[in-house]
């Protein structure tokens, strides 16, 4: 079987699916002051698994929107205006859907794959671990 390290270099997805990989990448992002992008990515995954009939789900959708999207945070800056408008309108109309953050998550993931993930694989945090 692949070693964890071999999996980490395979894709961002495999890195984030591994506990040690995800935590090490998080430490790296904290240092780079962009840990919000990763927390947002995990929040989207967590949200997708929530029960739409649970009143908590709307509150979580609002919390995600408030924390990462409506302000001028690093996540918000990396999202397309249309994506943000779509989420804002869904929340306003209280039309909550499991996939309402999927587009935003995909956009954030692409940016992470192109930037942070590549930087991580050459960072001293990663190399020291290896």
């Amino acid at each position: 079987p692949d070693s964890p390290l071999a999996r980490w270099t395979k894709s961002l997805h495999s890195l984030l699916g591994d506990q040690d990989g995800a935590y090490l990448f998080r430490t790296f992002l904290e240092r780079e002051k962009c840990v919000d992008t990763l927390d947002f990515w995990f929040a989207c995954n967590g949200f997708r698994q929530m029960d739409l009939k649970d009143t908590k789900t709307l509150r979580v959708a609002k919390a995600i929107y408030k924390r990462y999207i409506e302000n001028n945070s690093i996540v918000s800056k990396q999202l397309k205006p249309a994506t943000k408008t779509y989420i804002r309108d869904s929340i306003k109309k209280q039309q909550i859907d499991s996939i309402m953050f999927d587009q935003a998550q995909t956009e954030i993931q692409s940016v992470m794959e192109e930037n942070a993930y590549q930087m991580f694989l050459t960072s001293d945090i990663y190399l020291e671990y290896v």
Partner: peptide
């Protein structure tokens, strides 16, 4: 009632990979 921050943290933690 949980605060918004708690709900958000709970949501993030639920998606983090667990030790196998």
């Amino acid at each position: 009632i949980d605060s918004e921050d708690d709900l958000l943290q709970e949501c993030i933690s639920s998606a983090m990979p667990k030790k196998k």
